[in-house]
C-alpha cells in the first residue's frame, strides 16, 4: 500500500500526512486486536505466561530492541538531512536504517529457528503434549504477533528501498521539499517509527515478564 500512498499526485503536504497518520491508526488497531488477546489471556493464565516466557531468549530480544531503536534514529536523521537539502547524507542514513532492518530480521530468524527446532511452534505435538493451555496460547500469540510485526519490518524495508531510489533520482540542485520527496520520506518514516513502537511493546511483554 505504501508506494501508492506516497506517490499520489496531490501536492497537499498536510493532507498527505493526515492520510498517513490515519493509515497508521488502522495499523495500531490491527495490532490492538492481538494485544487485546494477549491481555485477556495473560490475565487468565498469569502463571503459564510467566513460565513460558522463560523459553524465550531475552538477550536476543534486547539486542533487537536496541537495533530497532537505532534504526528509528537513523530514519529521523535521514528525514532531517533531506529537509536540509542534503540528499547524499539522507541516502546514507536510509541505508543504515535498511541495514538495521536486515539485522533485526536475521536475529528474528535465528530465534524462530531455534524455537521450531525444539518443537515449539503452533500445533506441534510437543507443544500439545508437554505444555499447559496458557503456555500454548503464549507461544501462539508470540508467533502471531512477532510474525505480523516481522511482516511489517519487511514491508517497511521495501518501502525504504523505494524511498532511497526516489532520493537517488532527485535532480541536482532541486529543492526536495518542492518536488514532494520530503512528504514521501516523512510518511515512510512515520511508518517505520510505528513498526519500532510496536516492538517497544512486544519486547517487555514477551521477553521480560518471567
Amino acid at each position: 500500500m505504501e508506494p501508492v500512498e506516497g506517490s499520489h499526485e496531490h501536492s497537499d503536504y498536510i493532507g498527505a500526512k493526515i492520510g498517513m497518520w490515519l493509515f497508521l491508526f488502522t495499523e495500531v488497531l490491527l495490532f490492538g486486536g492481538l494485544f487485546l488477546c494477549y491481555a485477556v489471556y495473560r490475565h487468565r493464565y498469569a502463571q503459564d505466561f510467566h513460565s513460558a516466557a522463560h523459553e524465550l531468549n531475552a538477550v536476543l530480544g534486547c539486542v533487537n530492541t536496541l537495533v530497532l531503536l537505532t534504526s528509528s534514529l537513523t530514519m529521523a536523521l535521514a528525514i532531517s538531512a533531506l529537509q536540509k537539502n542534503r540528499p547524499g547524507l539522507s541516502r546514507f542514513y536510509l541505508w543504515a536504517t535498511i541495514g538495521c532492518a536486515v539485522i533485526f530480521l536475521g536475529i528474528k530468524y535465528v530465534e524462530w529457528g531455534a524455537k521450531i527446532h525444539h518443537g515449539i511452534y503452533p500445533g506441534s505435538e510437543h507443544l500439545m503434549a508437554n505444555f499447559n493451555p496458557g503456555e500454548r496460547l503464549f507461544f501462539g500469540l508470540y508467533f502471531s504477533m512477532t510474525g505480523l510485526h516481522g511482516l511489517h519490518v519487511i514491508i517497511g524495508g521495501i518501502v525504504l528501498l523505494c524511498v532511497e531510489r526516489i532520493v537517488a533520482k532527485l535532480p541536482r540542485g532541486e529543492d526536495p521539499g518542492e518536488s514532494g520527496t520530503v512528504t514521501i520520506i516523512e510518511n515512510a518514516g512515520l511508518y517505520w517509527h510505528l513498526v519500532d513502537i510496536i516492538w517497544v511493546y512486544l519486547f517487555p511483554l514477551y521477553y521480560l515478564l518471567t
Binding site: 490515519l22 490491527l30 489471556y41 503452533p122 496460547l137
Partner: peptide, 25 residues
Amino acid sequence: QILATPVVGITLLLILVERIFHIGL
C-alpha cells in the same frame, strides 16, 4: 471505518491462521 475495521481485519486473519496453524486462540 478507520478505527473499527482493522479490528475485524485481524480477527478474520486469526480465524484463517487458526485454520492453518492451530494456534488455539
